[in-house]
Write a protein that binds this DNA or RNA. Structure first.
Lengths: 211, 211
DNA sequence: TCGTCCCTGAAGCGATGGCTCCAGGGAATA
DNA sequence: TATTCCCTGGAGCCATCGCTTCAGGGACGA
């Protein structure tokens, strides 16, 4: 399975990375349709034939960049993330928000931006990259719902889909806040809005807590 | 100022409408770049030359469709909207949400969808339509902030930008929820999430109320 | 009935889209 | 040194892109 000519193979991997770097940059600016192979070639400094040699066609190229982005983000999510045991519930929720979704907006803005574009689009035949992004998003939802379910359980709140609804609300809000950074909101505002959101979620849970 | 040949002029207006109908349909599916004049011609049944005769070029065409969408939505927002005087604050907030922003998602989904695409995009020269959409969005924010400010005032909560932050949170959430309808959320869920959001806003205000 | 003006139809411009082909170059292996 | 295999370079295919041009057709006021 291993490559025969290591050195040469390594250079190929580097080329792939350079190409994908160019793709995510362009795609985040101009969307699927606006991402042209010749532009990718120009910005990456590699010839068109290399792009096709590595990725086969445009759809696979786009899919590859989504996959790489999701992998990078997943790796970060998997990092253990410690919380002060004395933290309030609200602080705990805020921590989840910042770690799980806020990080996406902060550390992989191009990935999220392009992913949201793909989400909005709809063409005759679904780009592979769109499917991948939606799956990634679903995975992320499950993660958040899992975290919320633990919180609800600790409060003895029966979870009849409540955690899921909260999770959907959270993801939606973060998406929307990120979108707003494309208009007039700046990144610092985004973080403070995340805290506001954490407060709102906390209060919604409080309201449901039996006593 | 009036048209000379009324009948012919009227037909021209109808053609314009048919063209814009085709544009918003295509643009909501495929974005700015994916909206080609020849496709618009095909779907509207009118020749390319008519499109250019009416709108001059592609950028103006896109701008016109955004403008029409915003006008339609504004007209609806301007409609008086009555609230039960006995309504709770939460119900009042929910009513504002449904009337001001929810209506956009429900009644002009293509407009919102395309607008969000434009918001995400960024090309060398900003399309006129994008600027228009962002202005529309700003107007809408002011409206909501105005409504919230009244609520805060009634509760004697000092408004040091709190209303604006809530407004931004609301718009972001609605955008995000709409986005989610492009993935897996259905429209009924959107409405129930709006109520959840109204509850969250209500609780955030409650928390700030001096007593 | 005539001329005017709004709009349409068809043809076609240069540029660019995705994609293919194929002759190599150059490191690794024999 | 000879051979193999990964990758690159560049020319070029055909379709379609945005956009333009211009000769009319048809309803109107005169």
């Amino acid at each position: 399975m291993g490559p025969k000519t290591t050195r040469r193979h390594q250079q190929g991997e580097e080329s792939k990375e350079r190409i994908l770097d160019a793709v995510i940059q362009i795609a985040a600016e101009r969307g699927y349709e606006g991402t042209t192979v010749s532009l990718v070639s120009e910005r990456s400094g590699l010839p068109v034939s290399s792009i096709y040699w590595h990725f086969g066609n445009k759809d696979e190229l786009i899919a590859a960049v989504i996959e790489r982005g999701f992998r990078a983000w997943s790796a970060e999510q998997a990092e253990p993330f410690e919380v002060d045991p004395a933290a309030t519930r609200r602080e705990l929720i805020a921590a989840i928000l910042h770690h799980d979704v806020g990080s996406l907006a902060r550390r992989h803005p191009e990935f999220l931006r392009f992913g949201l574009m793909l989400t909005l689009e709809q063409r005759a035949e679904e780009p592979k990259g769109r499917t991948l992004f939606l799956e990634a998003r679903e995975t992320s939802l499950e993660r958040i719902v899992g975290g919320l379910a633990l919180v609800l359980e600790a409060e003895r709140i029966p979870d009849d889909g409540f955690a899921r609804r909260l999770g959907q609300l959270i993801i939606a809000t973060v998406d929307g806040l990120f979108l707003a950074t494309r208009a007039s909101l700046d990144l610092d505002d985004l973080n403070s809005h995340l805290d506001l959101l954490a407060g709102a979620i906390d209060l919604l849970i409080e309201e449901r807590t039996p006593r």
